[in-house]
C-alpha cells in the first residue's frame, strides 16, 4: 500500500477522532469496502455518543458493539444510576450511597452523610425540648393524635397524665433559675426511667409535663401515676452547689373516650383533673374519669 493510499484510509478515521469540524467527504470506493465502512461507522457512533454524553444527555441509546462501546454504555449506566440516586436523595432518601465512582463516591457519600446528620439534628431540634430532651409540646401533641388513631384501630384503651411540679415558683425563688432548670432536668431523668419505652413523655409548659400511656385504662394509669408521684416525693436532687432539693408532684389522669374528637380534649380532661388535685392540696393523683 502506498503512502497516499494509507493516508486516504487513515485521514477520515483520524478526522472522526480529532477534528471538531467533522468529517470530510469520503470516496465511495472506500466506503464500499466492508471492513473500512464498519470501522468508520463504529467510530462515528462513538463520536456522536461521546458528544451527547459530554453535554450531559444520558438518554441517547448507544447502538453498536465492541470494547469501547460496552464500556461507554457501562459509564452511561453508572451515570443513570447516579441520577436516580440523586433524585431519591432529593426526595429524602438519605440511605443512598455510591460505590462505583472512585474519589467522587467518597465525596458524594460524605455529602449525603452530612445531609443525614443535619436532617437528624433539625428533626431533634424541631421535636425535642432543649432543656429536658423530652418531646416538645408540638411533637407531643402530634404523637398524641397518632396514638389515638392507633388505640382506636386496635380497640385498646389509652390514658394521659398531666403532671405539674408543686410550688415550682418557690424552687426557682430559693435556688435560682439555674437550680430550677437542674430540677426540671432531674425530673425528666426520673420520668425516663419510670415510664415504659412505649409511653410518650413531653414537656408541655414551664414546669408542666404530660405522658401518653398506650394500652392503659384509667384504673391502671392511676396506679402508675401513684408510683411516679411517690418516686418523685422520695427523690433528692443534688444541685451543682451541693444543695439538695426535694419536691412533690400533682398528677391529673384521663382516659381516652369514644366521643373524644381529638387529643387536645383528652389532655384538657387530664388538666382539669390536675387542677382538682391542686385544689385538693397538691402531692396527689386525681382522675375525673371514674
Amino acid at each position: 500500500m502506498s503512502e497516499a493510499q494509507m493516508r486516504e484510509i487513515l485521514t477520515p478515521l483520524a478526522d472522526l477522532l480529532n477534528n471538531p469540524a467533522g468529517i470530510k467527504e469520503i470516496s465511495p470506493e472506500l466506503m464500499a469496502k466492508t471492513d473500512f465502512r464498519e470501522l468508520y461507522q463504529s467510530l462515528a457512533v462513538i463520536r456522536e455518543f461521546a458528544l451527547t454524553l459530554s453535554r450531559g444527555d444520558l438518554s441517547t441509546k448507544l447502538n453498536g458493539k465492541g470494547f469501547v462501546v460496552a464500556h461507554l454504555k457501562a459509564l452511561q449506566s453508572n451515570l443513570r444510576h447516579l441520577t436516580w440516586q440523586t433524585k431519591r436523595i432529593a426526595q429524602g432518601d438519605l440511605i443512598q450511597r455510591v460505590d462505583f465512582m472512585g474519589d467522587f463516591s467518597d465525596s458524594f457519600n460524605s455529602m449525603v452523610e452530612a445531609l443525614a446528620k443535619t436532617q437528624a439534628d433539625l428533626e431533634e431540634l424541631a421535636t425535642t425540648d432543649p432543656l429536658t430532651k423530652l418531646e416538645n409540646r408540638r411533637s407531643f401533641f402530634d404523637k398524641g393524635q397518632r396514638c389515638i388513631e392507633q388505640s382506636r384501630r386496635y380497640e385498646m384503651p389509652m390514658s394521659v397524665f398531666v403532671l405539674d411540679l408543686d410550688h415550682f415558683k418557690k424552687i426557682n425563688d430559693t435556688f435560682g433559675h439555674h437550680g430550677g432548670d437542674q430540677v426540671l432536668r432531674s425530673v425528666a431523668e426520673i420520668f425516663r426511667t419510670s415510664f415504659r419505652s412505649t409511653d410518650v413523655v413531653g414537656r408541655i409548659g414551664g414546669e408542666e409535663f404530660s405522658v401518653i400511656l398506650p394500652e392503659e385504662d384509667a384504673k391502671r394509669a392511676q396506679m402508675v401515676a401513684q408510683r411516679v408521684m411517690e418516686q418523685c416525693r422520695s427523690a433528692e436532687i443534688e444541685l451543682e452547689d451541693a444543695r439538695v432539693v426535694r419536691f412533690t408532684l400533682s398528677i391529673g389522669v384521663a382516659q381516652l373516650r369514644a366521643n373524644d374528637k381529638n387529643f387536645e380534649q383528652v389532655v384538657q380532661r387530664a388538666d382539669d383533673a390536675l387542677y382538682a388535685a391542686k385544689r385538693a392540696g397538691r402531692n396527689r393523683v386525681c382522675c375525673l374519669d371514674e
Binding site: A74, S77, N78, R80, H81, T83, W84, Q85, F100
Partner: peptide, 20 residues
C-alpha cells in the same frame, strides 16, 4: 451481582435496572 437502578417509576410501573 451488583444491582443498580437507572429508572423507577412506581406510577407507570416502568423500571430499568442493571446487574453487573
Amino acid at each position: 451481582g451488583i444491582l443498580r437502578v437507572e429508572e423507577a417509576d412506581m406510577e407507570t410501573g416502568k423500571f430499568v435496572i442493571t446487574i453487573s
